[in-house]
């Protein structure tokens, strides 16, 4: 149920686009209005979300320390896993953001028994997670060719690299393959690993189905149901130049399906767990230096509290203290 409904939702989205374009001729709605709206929701939503997080103070300095602290000079500090400087923190964050350092930690194994079965799913999670995010980014960058009049050199180089296997025509992009494989893996593990299945919500399946839909429609469009690339670019360029127009011999329906699913993803993004992308940069257990014994961390809402003062304490115990030979303030 938790997986079925999201699946049906994605199918409905696909059908909506097909029916909307094929039967109702709503090209303008699906090609212009919805993408604009989705982009607006995405931008506003993500900014709102990040700002709303950013506005919440960090009252305490609570990094999770994963290495030796800075202490006596002859003890070697772990500068990245337990940073005390901005450089250390930045390196830690970069490792976290670009290489999923913490997920990678799961890899370390020893004294395992039995045959190779022993390699846990953790390594795969890291690999699939990393492949998924990186290929997603590369594919996104590759798509810049549709949004720039002259395709920038780096994008061209990326395309070359990506298709260096020289398979098929149009040339097969390696990222497409890895991307689809990674998404599929991430989806399958939600069904097969009981612990993960147990914790998965509809909100975990929906983005996976949606992204899978985007990937599949994109691949279909490039390799199988060929669509008019020139028409696509004409439309996308008109969108980015804010003079939207649907080309006469516009791209085929599959393009609208692809675009509609992307729009859905963009619009859904700020309200979902997908905003973890922005959140990771703000995570107080990762983005703070462990220097709170050297530099005072200030809590903006620190307020005075009721304490039991020494005076009150002495009043309670003065006689006992005197008997025990403990010095007191008031005799």
């Amino acid at each position: 149920m938790r997986a079925l409904l999201p699946f049906i939702t994605v199918i409905v989205l696909v059908l909506l686009a097909i029916v909307g374009v094929e039967a109702a001729n709503l090209q303008f709605l699906f090609g212009v209005v919805i993408p604009y709206a989705a982009a607006a929701i995405f931008l506003a939503g993500v900014i709102y979300k990040v700002v709303s997080w950013g506005r919440v103070p960090v009252p305490f300095r609570i990094p999770t320390t994963c290495g030796q602290q800075k202490t006596l000079p002859w003890i070697k500090q772990s500068r990245i896993e337990n940073p005390t400087t901005s450089a250390g923190v930045i390196t830690r964050m970069l490792l976290e953001v670009f290489l999923f350092r913490s997920l990678f930690r799961n890899l370390k194994t020893e004294l395992r028994e039995g045959p190779q079965l022993s390699y846990g799913s953790d390594k795969w999670l890291w690999l699939a997670g990393l492949s998924f995010h990186w290929t997603f980014l590369l594919i996104l960058i590759r798509h810049l060719r549709f949004f720039t009049q002259n395709v920038p050199i780096p994008v061209q180089m990326l395309e070359h690299l990506d298709s260096f296997l020289q398979i098929g025509l149009p040339l097969l992009y390696i990222t497409d393959v890895i991307f689809l494989a990674a998404v599929t893996f991430l989806l399958i593990r939600r069904f097969t690993i009981p612990q993960v299945k147990y914790i998965s919500l509809a909100a975990d399946y929906f983005p996976l189905f949606l992204i899978l839909g985007i990937g599949v429609s994109g691949v279909l469009m490039r390799y199988f149901i060929k669509t008019d690339v020139v028409g696509v670019k004409e439309l996308t360029m008109s969108l980015v130049s804010f003079s939207p127009a649907i080309p006469k011999d516009g791209p085929g329906t599959i393009f609208y399906v692809h675009l509609f699913l992307i729009s859905a993803l963009f619009a859904y993004f700020p309200f979902s767990k997908l905003v973890h992308m922005g959140g990771v940069f703000l995570s107080p257990t990762r983005n703070l230096a462990n220097n709170s014994r050297m530099v005072r961390h200030v809590n903006p809402w620190n307020y005075p509290v009721k304490v039991h003062t020494y005076e009150e304490y002495e009043n309670d115990f003065r006689e006992k203290m005197k008997t025990a030979g403990i010095p007191v303030e008031k005799e």
Binding site: L103, N106, V275, G279
Partner: peptide
């Protein structure tokens, strides 16, 4: 608490 706010929002339930 930013930690609280953030940790309510960003978990992807990866199971690590």
């Amino acid at each position: 608490y930013r930690s609280f706010r953030l940790f309510m929002d960003i978990c992807v339930r990866c199971g690590a």
